[in-house]
Write a protein that binds this DNA or RNA. Structure first.
Lengths: 133, 133
DNA sequence: CTCCTAATCAGGAATTATTCTTATTCGAGG
DNA sequence: CCTCGAATAAGAATAATTCCTGATTAGGAG
């Protein structure tokens, strides 16, 4: 099972620091924008590659939310998310869900691994005015 | 609230029949492939447009599953889905999952509209061999 | 410290899914 | 039939992400 070696490059380090340093759930290009301030020559491809590597390593989380852009989360503790249907913003939800029950597996031929709950709603900001951005 | 008029064109009719006639959860291009057999000159854009219109009308369902391609479902009765993490195939689940509790909404400042439950698993086919597709 | 090499990088092209544009056609109410 | 807004085919455009290439570098071996 030869695992691939991973070097800690300056780029990867700064991308990691950036994601961990945010309480938001940034998209790849938002991270790109921030990292660029410290590493002006970094490329978007590098950001994507490192976000994927860090996700594989379980150091950050990739939010496979329905919709267009994927978002990333520096908080890998178990929690769920709400997404604003208007602006796409994501908020954390720290509640417990029951474990997948064996009863479920009996009713499907799939081997069930996990389940996610994604709540959809409207964020405080978009509740105020008719979204005019 | 002037609803937009919708004409029943031959294209829309056949797209609808196709989706309703399938027990699978086809992607837009799979539907395109099938509809094409009856309407060789139809364009992919027409398929997309009509799938969206039919979804708006609640006649079919668009599955906003995380991942790359969206899938459609001719069965609009309430049920959930499992997605195979290996091949992306989707299966229906006709059992009850934990209902959203008001407790959840209290923990966020978002106005909750709806919630999705997405189960992830491995389909029978992918359980067998080391996925060599 | 120096060498070596696989891992990584920057830059940009390629891919993929979906939406949009435009000129033309058509469904259905009058 | 006529009319007209809705719908169509074809293909361009967009957006997010992945892939490709030749140059660079981290970090272990010597």
């Amino acid at each position: 099972m030869a695992e691939k070696q991973h070097r800690m490059t300056r780029q990867r380090q700064i991308i990691l620091e950036t994601v961990k340093g945010l309480k938001t759930h940034p998209t790849a290009d938002e991270i790109f924008g921030l990292v660029r301030k410290r590493l002006p020559r970094i490329s978007l491809g590098t950001v994507y590659r490192n976000l994927d590597i860090l996700t594989e390593q379980g150091i950050i989380r990739k939010l496979d939310t329905a919709g267009q852009q994927k978002r990333f989360d520096g908080d890998v503790s178990p929690h769920y998310h709400v997404k604003c249907v208007k602006c796409g913003k994501i908020d954390d939800l720290y509640f417990e869900l029951p474990q997948p029950s064996s009863e479920w597996s009996e009713k499907t031929s799939f081997q069930i691994l996990e389940y996610n709950v994604e709540l959809l709603g409207i964020c405080p900001q978009c509740q105020k005015g008719p979204s005019h951005h």
